[in-house]
Design a protein around this nucleic acid. Structure first.
Length: 608
RNA sequence: GCCUUAGUGGCUCAGGGGUAGAGCGAUGCCUUGGUAAGGCAUAGGCCGGGGGUUCAAAUCCCCCCUAAGGCUCCA
């Protein structure tokens, strides 16, 4: 924003004719005359659209400062577009000017405002003393002094239907104890690197991409396969429950008020980009896209609940550099994001309970243990204590409860599910939230039974949390359990499910035939026909965490039994092809399948 | 973003003012083998980038980039 401050003897103006963007005014405002006024000629600029309120605050304090120095009697805010060549939209400009007026008024400073969007004749008499003419550029940025001590949350443990203080609860050794220690900031740190960072590279899943920004990854074929399978998994999970998949843009115009207000809560953690005429931000979740569709749809009470699902490939958050790590904290990541439109709070609470079940189920399907935090505002908790207790009881084990003194974000209640990493720190994964703000802010309405337009309550839910964090949890889990059992991924997610090892060259044809049989029955299989000893090839299969390894030689060609090395148990089991296939099918029942996106023979494979 | 530490072949690391090193991996040859490393050979390096100090810098100094840990933070 540009402002030109003139300390005047008097200012007179008279409206002449309207422009297209003129605001409506009373006749009395068509002429104005002010004596001993500090005239604030103001041009609101494009960049102010990102944070109009911040600009208003800073402009007002600037005006107040000058006012006290020159000792003018009153302030006139005067729209003056000619101070800038990069103007904001008229709507934002009007809003900013109005807010400047009302903020000054609140401070008991006599203030008037000349009408916006009119051609005006004016006459100003400048006093001519040193401070009587000042120009300033005002931005939204520096208002750092707002480090007000916020009232802190209170934490409790809910166990067996009782609310206990975090001190009186008796912890068993394990993930929940670690979660609480972390949440309360009582975690002693070991200073090691989380093992998943090494594993994601060692297993050729993903790696840092130095040519991108910090926190953006390249995904190799195996990693990409796992991502796709997880995407399929969540897609099936939510569509079975009636959600409708959509796809929406990854960037949004900050001139949109609702988006701006929502984005402002995210503060500095946004990627911004500009074109000649717009200020854009990259989305940090799918909320905007879903809300815009929902706002433009005609919803009725009969439709509800309406579930809208999108996998955000990608979501962007400009996390601080020192916080970005491996798969755990990224600047570009992929998150399943489900928004559910509910009639009212009762309905939302009912759906919330359903979604708890869904989140819980993902832990089972992925083989990952979740510990749970229920968070609620104090008001909500007092009014809905019974419901909270019931929701928590669905978890079937102790849950950490956070009571927030007041609403900080758009939600009044949420449940967070966290896996615990090798070093005992939480990886925040699934979440369900009750959003009481966005319905109104984004103009989402539905027609209720009395034919009235009503703002719905909206649930946000990510049933697995970000895809990257899911993979992170899986890898951390294998590292944590390394001493007890051989590390491996769930069979439905593992790239190579069966590795066939021919003993000598004359067994290669048989191995290839066997592989194509297995492949035809939807098993991901490959053949290690490299010029190596059997021992070496077994070892290599082990390094890749292949769950089933089949060595084929003369014996297997003659009979129809295979000797299968089962990684999970470390046993060598004799079975025929059908038994192997059905064993794998049983283990992966209900889970998505995709083909192995790699050459079937190892010698053709690229080393990433 | 701040503090600390680190960056040397694809990977894991040694070296530490004066010929650039090892293991694994890769490639080739020999071995045609029965369950977690067979043998021999070869290739592969602007020692993260830029500036400086020096006769001489991978090595010392400064700046930057990247990573890890910590702080802080994560709707």
């Amino acid at each position: 924003m540009r402002i030109l401050l003139i300390h005047s003897d008097y200012l007179k103006y008279k409206t002449k004719s309207k422009t297209k963007i003129a605001e409506k005014i009373d006749d009395k405002d068509k002429i104005g005359e002010f004596k001993e006024a500090l005239v604030v000629f103001t041009a609101v600029e494009k960049e102010d659209e990102e944070n109009p309120d911040g600009v208003v605050e800073n402009a007002v304090s600037e005006v107040k400062d000058v006012l006290s120095k020159v000792g003018a009697k009153n302030v006139v805010v005067y729209p003056y577009a000619h101070l800038s060549s990069s103007l904001s939209s008229p709507d934002v400009a009007k809003e900013v000017l109005q807010k400047m007026e009302s903020r000054l008024d609140e401070m008991n400073i006599p203030v008037a405002r000349a009408p916006f969007g009119w051609y005006k004749a004016f006459e100003v008499s400048c006093k001519g003393h040193p401070l009587s003419e000042l120009s300033r550029t005002v931005t939204a940025e520096p208002k750092k002094e707002e480090k007000v001590e916020e009232e802190k949350s209170k934490f409790y443990v809910i166990a067996d239907g009782k609310i206990l203080s975090t001190e009186e609860f008796r912890y068993k050794e394990g993930d929940f104890k670690k979660l609480v220690a972390n949440e309360l900031g009582k975690m002693e740190s070991t200073g090691e690197e989380p093992p998943h960072v090494r594993l994601m590279r060692e297993k050729s899943l993903a790696d840092y991409e130095p040519s991108a920004d910090v926190g953006h990854l390249r995904w190799y074929p195996k990693g990409r396969l796992i991502r796709d399978l997880l995407a399929d998994y969540v897609y099936n999970l939510v569509t079975e429950r009636g959600a409708m998949p959509v796809e929406t843009p990854i960037m949004y115009d900050l001139a949109d008020k609702a988006i701006n207000a929502h984005a402002a809560k995210f503060g500095e953690r946004q990627y911004r980009l500009g074109t000649k005429s717009k200020n854009l931000m990259l989305r940090y979740a799918c909320c905007f896209g879903a809300f815009r569709i929902l706002a433009d749809s005609f919803l009725t009470w009969k439709n509800l609940p309406v579930g809208m699902y999108e996998l955000s490939t990608y979501s962007f958050r400009l996390e601080k550099k020192g916080e970005v790590v491996g798969l755990k904290r990224l600047r570009g990541f992929t998150m399943p994001d489900l928004h559910t439109v509910c009639r009212d709070m009762d309905h939302a609470m009912e759906e919330f309970n359903d979604q708890i079940d869904m989140c819980k189920q993902t832990g089972v399907d992925l083989g990952v243990n979740y510990e749970v935090i229920m968070r609620a505002t104090a008001d909500f908790f007092e009014e809905n204590r019974d419901w909270v207790m019931e929701a928590v009881s669905k978890i079937g084990k102790p849950v950490l409860l956070e009571i927030l003194p007041e609403r900080k974000h758009y939600w009044i209640a949420k449940m967070d599910f966290a896996a615990i990493d090798y070093l005992g720190r939480p990886i925040e994964n699934p979440t369900v939230q009750i959003d009481v703000e966005s319905g109104e802010r984004f103009g989402i309405t539905y027609m209720d039974q009395e034919e009235k337009e009503v703002n719905p309550i909206i649930l946000h839910c990510s049933p697995t949390g970000s895809v990257e964090r899911v993979i992170c949890s899986l890898l951390e889990k294998t590292a944590a359990e390394m001493d007890e059992k051989p590390p491996m991924l769930p069979v439905w997610l593992t790239p190579t499910q069966v590795r066939i090892i021919p003993i000598a060259e004359r067994h290669a044809d048989f191995a290839m035939k066997l592989a194509s049989d297995l492949k035809a029955q939807k098993v991901r299989v490959d053949v290690d026909e490299m010029h190596e000893t059997v021992g070496k090839k077994i070892r290599n299969a082990g390094k890749e965490w292949v769950p089933y390894v089949v060595v084929v030689g003369d014996k297997e060609i003659e009979g129809n039994q295979l000797t299968v090395n089962v990684r999970k148990t470390g046993e060598k089991v004799s079975m025929d092809v059908d038994e192997l296939v059905s064993r794998i099918h049983d283990e992966t029942a209900g889970m998505p399948f995709r083909n192995l996106p790699l050459p079937i023979t190892l010698s053709k494979r690229v080393h990433f």
